[in-house]
Design a protein around this nucleic acid. Structure first.
Length: 1138
RNA sequence: GCCGACGUGGCGGAAUUGGUAUACGCGCGUGCCUUAGGAGCACGUUCCGAAAGGAUUGUGGGUUCGAGUCCCACCGUCGGCACCA
């Protein structure tokens, strides 16, 4: 018999599999038997496959092969995340075109993966750099744009000056570029953003429904970072009395509003610049803003000492107290979170406390920590106490009469200050007079029974920290002085002693020891807060929000940490953003025509506000009262407008409600185009939203020629409120589709009321000089004439090919957006493309989506938790909302309809033999191809799975690889021992069935390491046999085949089979035959193992106990004593208690 | 600083609901075979001890007849977040 020669048999079987198309995706599938296995999309790097890749593909492959053998119809594909920076950086260095180097890398990856024997359907391979792929990436961008989920905005971004591009937040690691480790700086740029924040709540809520690792789910939740609170408006007191200005802050603690003693703005806050003329120390402020803008991400993180500068000459008004408070600019407030402004409550917020201490700002307690119960009948009392230090000892008084320890303290008499009371009590109880006040430790409310006074107190205690300057005592002897004994104790000891009294005093000692002193940021009871006094923090929050909403100076607000996703990249090797620009149109001043709705009055009348806003931007506005507003007639209104103003290509029509149909009538009659039509809560038919409007209905037919209307405007925008409260979602979508319009949605909580459209919505709606490439013109191809030299400008800016024909196609002045999309856009939807990779009409057909989604098993790295995984979920939810998908009926009814990955797991990191992360720097990189060449692919596969649990990090061990090879050699050599006869040995039959059970269960649970151990155990037993049965050996080969498919095929073939082992059914075990007929019971005496006995499996409890007590060792250990208790655990042990 | 995960032989790791701790592999030791072996085979291998026996799952405590597993406190390693109001 020849020796095991993996190189030979592996290529042989890989060829056969490929020829027979064994892993072609099955067609005859249903929701019961389909199984979609997804290994994460690799970036095809020039340095080839990494052992980590091999781990992912092998694990998925073993699982896939196992699932096929159990009868599942498996879909497994591999593709390439083939756009991206490294290929471009390589091009800059070597002048090799990225398309070329990518092709080489992909070929290399593909052949390496094939050499591992991974069973994927290669006919479905995709690469994100191929035009027929990125066509659909661009299509997704347009989908977002049309649904109002893509917008352009100028703001400060993460800039990598080495890669010369912008990075998303999750691509910045510790202030450095994830790719090249360059320090990230902040730069103001106009960029495309995706409004993932609109989906924050759904992304958060649906996580719990997924079978993902718990810590992963938690990390994603934390990244989304929901917090609930309120927005509060603070009026400004400035020298310019004509203009009323206000600043809105976000707070999670509206209950502490009475304690807001100053206000802080982020340096980038827009309002700061607008206050230039009123701020007395503008030079200083400007200098500060400039200094902070130069700070890098890292500086901000490392240097945490708080800095800031006051805006002198202006004040804010605390709205609950009508009190003037100072305003600061400080970079501890982030421009990108909340409103970029905060109310500072130093007594109850650590950061504000720190800042207030540094700049000597007032600290006002409005929440007290509460100790003890909530006994309503308790007697209230204000009291004061002192934590007195002498060196590092604390003064604790011992009351001899009642045997209790206390701090010097007592009730505050009428008119006394805290200092007065403390001074008096310290004299009376301990006699000390010579001290200084070091710190104010704030207040605590404690509800307790005082033994010395026989009373239930509810005490509000104020406490000062004192330093004793000398032991000098008063001459006067007080009565109470006799009762107390002064002890100087170490703080630990003091805390211990004080526990016997009321629980609050030990907290004061703790506060005295900490730098933060009186700061209390927990929940408690409101004080000094007028109508909130006495309420718990939760109650006070609610009441304050109600109060703010009633007064119209604030509202409930949910805030997320998640930011919108920046997707513009100033690079070449990515999917071009399919948008067009027109500078002239962008800067042009337009004639706005506003068509109001039915009964436009009061809160429903946008005209004055809109006129002001638009005129400020330099546009002309025509917003007339239309005739017979109480009995409107669409035709009459349309004519009125046509007769009273000019409608031409310079016109933007804004139509509210019933104004919409009026606008439609106007557009139907136009010979020329207008620039834009903006529809605000517009009705398509008269029965909107719920009630009939006979007066309107009578006036017109409400049949429109939408073809004509569509051709009469360059652009259409439909504005919707966030929750579709005003106009129903399906009606809005109908209109959006009819007009191919862009839908601009307000953010949560925003409604079009009070005579205003939400300003951010208006801003987004009136943008001009921007339009999407028509879907029929996709893909926007990457040109070839590109200079890669990084200039900070997108390389596409300089390409002539790229802009060629654009003006001819779209009109004069239009040109293409030169930025490309973040590659995460490409990888957010690839698992859909696998389902229908050649479709040139859709990203995937509805049938394919219905058949295969959702993904049944997704394996990928934990580094993608807050990037790829979140983006993919977001893509899926948008598709769901747009009506493309709904998985709720597919792959299990427990699933949500808009989640792509049902089960997700992470692979652990494979470390170098030195236990460090593999890297060229350490010279500890293991190349999978080397391993395959030396030991064979089957050894490589099995070793990686045997190293340890899939999800854990584990170091490489070359000797361990040899061990696996030895194992495979043994399995190979076993073929010599095979005989046709049935196995005689009973115990062997039991082992066969036990092994089938164990391996099957472990593989199903992805516990590949223990499955392999079981195979080894089985093999070790077979090795000891003189001859082994063909049946038993066949089982071994089948069980081994997902792990070592090549060798299993060869052995299967050598047993005389003409088909493949890959297509065999998974062996079935007989539960009866897995049972042993004898069992070894442990005998414990007082919990310690003393003996074991072997008994029949079906022994009765009585017999087992008798048997155990008869054991010689037991008799010896019992020493004649009677056992108190004998516990029997079936099949496990007998525990004897003496 | 906050959050999370994890601590088991010389090493990677195993141990349903609490039930014989150290499966499987590596390494190591002894022997066999061999001109030789970094090949193969056999036996052994948690630690201390010649043995009887004892100790042992990061440390300390608790619950239990019984704890690697559950509870509390602490220590250590790794990962994530990092002024998020």
């Amino acid at each position: 018999m020849e020796k095991y020669n993996p190189q030979e048999i592996e290529s042989k079987w890989q060829k056969i599999w490929e020829e027979q198309k064994l892993f072609k995706t099955p067609e005859d599938i249903n929701s019961e038997n389909k199984f979609y296995i997804l290994p994460q999309l690799p970036y095809p790097s020039g340095s080839g496959l990494h052992v980590g890749h091999a781990e992912v593909y092998t694990a998925c492959d073993i699982y896939a092969r196992y699932q096929r053998m159990t009868g599942k119809k498996v879909l497994q594909v591999i593709g390439w995340d083939s756009f991206g920076l490294p290929a471009e950086n390589y091009a800059i260095k070597t002048n090799v075109h990225p398309a070329k180097s990518t092709e080489t890398a992909v070929n290399n990856f593909r052949s390496q993966i094939k050499s591992l024997g991974i069973s994927v359907d290669w006919d479905r391979e995709v690469g994100s750099h191929n035009p027929d792929y990125y066509k659909w990436t661009q299509w997704f961008f347009l989908l977002f744009y049309k649904r109002g989920l893509a917008y352009r905005k100028k703001q400060s971004v993460n800039w990598c000056d080495s890669c010369k591009t912008v990075l998303a937040n999750d691509q910045v690691k510790e202030g450095h570029c994830e790719r090249c480790d360059t320090l990230i700086i902040q730069k103001e740029m106009e960029q495309w953003y995706i409004k993932i924040t609109d989906y924050a709540e759904r992304l958060l809520n649906d996580i719990d429904k997924l079978d993902w690792p718990e810590e992963t789910k938690k990390r994603q939740k934390d990244w989304i970072g929901k917090s609930e609170g309120a927005e509060v408006d603070f009026r400004l007191q400035t020298s310019d009395h004509n203009q009323e200005k206000k600043i809105t802050v976000f707070t999670t603690r509206p209950d502490t509003l009475f304690g807001a003693t100053y206000m802080v703005l982020a340096p980038e806050h827009a309002v700061v610049r607008s206050l230039k003329s009123e701020v007395q120390n503008w030079d200083e402020v400007e200098k500060y803003i400039e200094a902070t803008s130069k700070k890098t991400e890292l500086d901000r993180q490392v240097q945490k000492e708080k800095t800031g500068v006051e805006l002198k000459g202006i004040k804010a008004i605390n709205p609950v107290k009508n009190e003037e408070i100072p305003i600061f600019v400080a970079d501890y407030v982030l421009a990108t979170y909340g409103t970029g402004a905060i109310m500072a409550v130093p007594a109850h917020d650590e950061r504000d406390f720190e800042f207030a201490k540094k700049y000597n700002l007032p600290i006002k307690d409005v929440v007290v920590q509460h100790c003890g119960g909530f006994d309503k009948s308790a007697k209230h009392r204000d009291s004061a106490a002192a934590v007195v230090f002498k060196d590092d000892k604390v003064l604790v008084l011992f009351n001899k009469k009642f045997n209790i320890y206390r701090l010097p303290s007592g009730g505050m008499e009428r008119g006394e200050t805290v200092e007065d009371t403390v001074q008096r009590e310290l004299r009376e109880e301990a006699g000390y007079t010579d001290y200084e006040v070091v710190d104010d430790l704030g207040m605590i409310e404690s509800n307790f029974y005082a033994v010395d006074k026989n009373i239930q107190w509810n005490k509000l205690q104020r406490v000062l920290k004192l330093k004793l300057l000398s032991d000098k005592k008063t001459d006067t002897a007080f009565e109470s002085y006799e009762d107390y004994e002064a002890n100087w104790l170490a703080p630990d000891e003091a805390i211990e002693k004080l526990k016997t009294y009321n629980g609050s005093e030990e907290i004061f000692i703790r506060r005295a020891l900490e730098k933060t002193g009186r700061l209390f940021s927990g929940e408690g009871t409101a004080i000094n807060s007028n109508f909130l006094d006495g309420l718990s923090t939760q109650e006070a929050k609610e009441k304050m929000i109600q109060w703010l909403e009633e007064k119209g100076i604030g509202k409930r607000k949910v805030q997320y940490k998640l930011r919108d996703w920046s997707v513009s990249r100033q690079r070449f090797w990515g999917a071009p953003i399919p948008m067009l620009f027109n500078e002239e149109r962008k800067n042009r001043k337009y004639n706005y025509v506003f068509i109001h709705g039915y009964l436009a009055t009061g809160n429903n009348d946008f005209r004055p506000w809109l006129k002001k806003e638009l005129e400020q931007l330099g546009h002309a506005v025509f917003s007339p009262d239309l005739p017979h507003n109480d009995k409107p007639n669409v035709v009459e209104w349309a004519e009125y407008i046509l007769n009273n103003t000019t409608i031409d290509e310079n016109t933007v029509i804004v139509a509210h409600s019933l104004g919409g149909p009026v606008a439609f009538r106007i557009l139907e009659k136009l010979k020329n185009k207008i620039a834009k039509l903006i529809l605000v809560d517009t009705v398509l038919r008269p029965d909107f939203p719920d009630k009939k409007r006979p007066d309107v209905e009578a006036s017109d037919s409400f049949e429109f020629d939408f073809e004509k209307i569509k051709s009469s405007s360059d652009e259409f925008v439909v504005i919707a409120d966030c929750d579709y409260k005003t106009i129903k979602k399906e009606h809005l979508e109908e209109m959006q589709k009819l007009l191919d319009a862009r839908l601009v949605k307000a953010r949560p909580n925003d409604r079009h009321f009070n005579g205003k459209i939400e300003p951010s919505v208006l801003e987004e709606s009136i943008v001009t000089g921007l339009k999407p490439v028509s879907e029929s013109d996709l893909p926007v191809l990457l040109p070839d004439d590109v200079d890669f030299k990084p200039t900070g400008q997108s390389p596409l800016t300089y390409s002539e090919d790229f802009q060629k024909g654009v003006e001819k196609r779209y009109g004069k002045g239009w040109h293409r957006e030169p930025d490309t999309l973040d590659t995460f856009m490409c990888s957010s939807w690839y698992y859909y493309r696998y389902l229908d990779p050649k479709n040139d009409q859709q990203f995937a057909s509805p049938e394919a989506l219905k058949k295969w989604m959702p993904v049944d098993f997704y394996l990928g790295g934990p580094e993608h938790v807050n990037g790829h995984l979140l983006y993919s979920r977001f893509f899926t939810k948008v598709l769901y909302d747009a009506g493309y998908i709904d998985f709720s009926a597919q792959g299990g009814s427990d699933l949500v309809g808009d989640e792509p990955f049902k089960v997700h797991r992470h692979q652990g990191l494979i470390l170098g033999p030195d236990n460090r992360k593999m890297s060229k720097r350490w010279g500890n990189v293991i190349n999978p191809t080397d391993v395959v060449n030396e030991f064979g692919a089957d050894t490589m596969r099995m070793y990686e799975m045997f190293m340890g649990p899939l999800e854990e990090d584990k170091p490489w061990d070359t000797n361990g690889v040899r061990g696996i090879r030895r194992f495979l050699d043994k399995v190979w050599n076993l073929q010599e021992k095979v005989i046709e006869a049935e196995a005689k040995s009973n115990s062997l039959t039991t082992l066969v069935h036990q092994t089938i059970k164990k391996v099957g269960e472990d593989v199903a649970a992805l516990k590949f390491n223990t499955a392999i151990a079981a195979l080894m155990q089985f093999t070790n037993v077979l090795l000891k046999e003189e001859k082994i049965s063909k049946v038993g050996y066949t089982v071994l080969i089948k069980l081994l085949s997902p792990f070592a498919p090549h060798m299993s095929e060869e052995l299967w073939y050598r047993l005389g089979n003409k088909d493949t082992v890959t297509t065999q059914p998974w062996p079935v075990y007989d539960p009866e035959l897995t049972k042993e007929n004898t069992v070894t019971l442990a005998i414990q005496i007082n919990g310690k193992l003393r003996d074991t006995i072997t008994v029949s499996t079906d022994i009765s409890e009585e017999d087992a106990k008798v048997e155990a007590l008869r054991s010689g060792k037991v008799i010896k250990w019992l020493e004649g004593k009677e056992p108190k208790k004998v516990i029997y655990v079936k099949g496990k042990l007998i525990s004897i208690v003496v």
